[in-house]
Computed example of a mutant assay.
Amino acid sequence: MSKIIILTDYRDTFYSTARTQHGLCTMDVARVVRSFDDAGLRPQVMRYADLDLSADLHGVPVLYTSSEDRGLQYKSWIEDLVLAMEAAGARTIPSFRFLRAHHNKVMMEALRTQLFPKEAARLHTYSFGTYEELEAADLVGSWPKVIKPASGAGSTGVASAMNRGELLRAARGLSWSGSLDEAAREYGRRLLRRRRHHPRSLHRQKFVVQDLIPGMAGDFKVLRMGSRYYTLYRRNRPGDFRASGSGDFNFHDTAGVDQEALLDYAEYVSDRLATPLASLDIGFDGTDFHLFEFQCLHFGTVTAEKSTHYYARSHGTWQRVPEDCDIEAVFCQAIVDYLRA
Rank of each mutant, 00 (worst) to 15 (best):
D56R: 08
G218S: 05
S307A: 13
F96P: 02
I213W: 02
L263A: 09
R196M: 01
G218D: 01
A150Y: 04
L111Y: 09
R237C: 01
A161S: 13
H103R: 05
G215N: 12
G247N: 12
M162D: 15
F249A: 01
M46S: 07
D138S: 11
T17V: 12
R190A: 15
G157T: 10
L191R: 13
T8W: 03
R193W: 07
R31N: 08
G59H: 07
L277N: 06
L123R: 12
A18Q: 09
G71C: 10
G286I: 06
P322T: 06
W176S: 02
L83W: 04
D281C: 03
D52F: 04
A120W: 02
R340I: 00
A30F: 03
G173F: 06
G89M: 12
F116V: 05
H309G: 00
S314A: 14
T308D: 15
N236C: 14
Y126M: 06
A261H: 07
H203I: 00
L212G: 00
S151H: 10
F14Q: 01
D219F: 08
V257S: 10
L24N: 12
D240W: 05
A49H: 04
A278R: 10
S177Y: 01
N163F: 05
F116I: 07
V330R: 09
F251V: 01
I335C: 10
E79F: 13
E166I: 03
R42L: 08
Y268L: 14
H197K: 04
A170T: 06
M216Y: 04
R200S: 12
I213M: 04
L63M: 08
V45Y: 07
L53H: 06
Y310G: 07
L123D: 02
C25Q: 15
L139E: 03
S35I: 00
A84M: 13
G256T: 04
L291R: 11
Y311R: 07
E133Y: 03
Q21I: 15
H252N: 06
G165K: 14
L111E: 14
L339A: 01
G157Q: 08
R47H: 03
R228K: 15
D264C: 12
L180T: 13
S95K: 11
Y187T: 14
P214A: 03
L7Q: 02
R172M: 14
V336Y: 09
K105M: 06
L7K: 02
G165A: 14
R34A: 13
D219A: 10
T156Q: 15
E119C: 00
C296M: 02
D219S: 08
M1H: 11
G23P: 12
H298E: 07
S201I: 02
A329S: 15
Y268N: 00
G23R: 03
R234W: 09
I93H: 04
A261Q: 13
E135G: 01
A137M: 10
I5Y: 15
L99C: 08
F36C: 05
S227P: 00
E166C: 05
L202A: 07
D37Y: 04
S160W: 14
A136Y: 00
G215L: 03
S314Q: 15
K3W: 00
A266S: 13
R47N: 03
T125D: 01
D9I: 06
L115N: 05
